[in-house]
């Protein structure tokens, strides 16, 4: 640890400045503004995976890395549906997950919104329909907004959230 601090003192850099693309900066500003205006500065999202390939989750996790850092804008991925404004739903809604997804949805207090993430919940990912798949999600839940992609990149997710917020 001392070794680390010695180096740190030498390098004099306290925070590394990661170069952000202009486009992401504009997105971040609009996100922050919209959340401030419509959700009193804090939007709580309950992410529910209903049978994804896990790439959609990985991209959601990427939203917290220093390049995007969504927490700073007031977007929180919360631990319980009872803390959530929005359910962000990924995956093909499997037979085994559907009852649990509906449970989670029930637990979210009104007003609430469901956003589908990725091609899977719209049944547009390249899977064939089987008995074990209950997608499209729109047959089971009121979907307010859809973010397409396989998977949507962090930037596309941010754009999607802006699109959703504009409509609220």
């Amino acid at each position: 640890m001392i070794k680390f601090w010695k180096e740190r003192a030498k390098s004099k850099i306290l925070t590394e400045n990661i170069k952000l693309e202009d486009e992401i900066n504009i997105l971040r500003d609009e996100l922050k503004g919209q959340i401030k205006a419509k959700f009193a500065g804090s939007l709580s999202i309950r992410m529910v995976d209903s049978g994804s390939c896990n790439a959609c989750e990985a991209e959601c996790n990427a939203l917290s890395n220093p390049y995007y850092d969504l927490e700073r804008l007031g977007i929180h991925f919360v631990a319980s549906p009872r803390h959530a404004d929005v359910m962000l739903l990924s995956g093909v809604l499997t037979f085994n997950m559907l009852p649990h997804v509906l449970d989670a949805w029930e637990q979210i207090p009104e007003p609430k919104w469901c956003i589908t993430l990725g091609d899977c919940p719209a049944m547009k990912a390249p899977f064939y329909q089987t008995f074990a798949i209950k997608a499209p999600a729109s047959e089971h839940l009121p979907i307010s907004y859809h973010i397409p992609g396989c998977p949507p990149s962090p930037e596309e997710i941010m754009k999607g959230l802006v699109g959703f917020l504009r409509g609220v």
């Binding site: 499997t94 037979f95 074990a132 798949i133």
Partner: peptide
């Protein structure tokens, strides 16, 4: 597990 069971083998 098997909550994500999509039946890929059958698919």
């Amino acid at each position: 597990h098997f909550y994500k069971y999509r039946a890929i083998e059958k698919m």
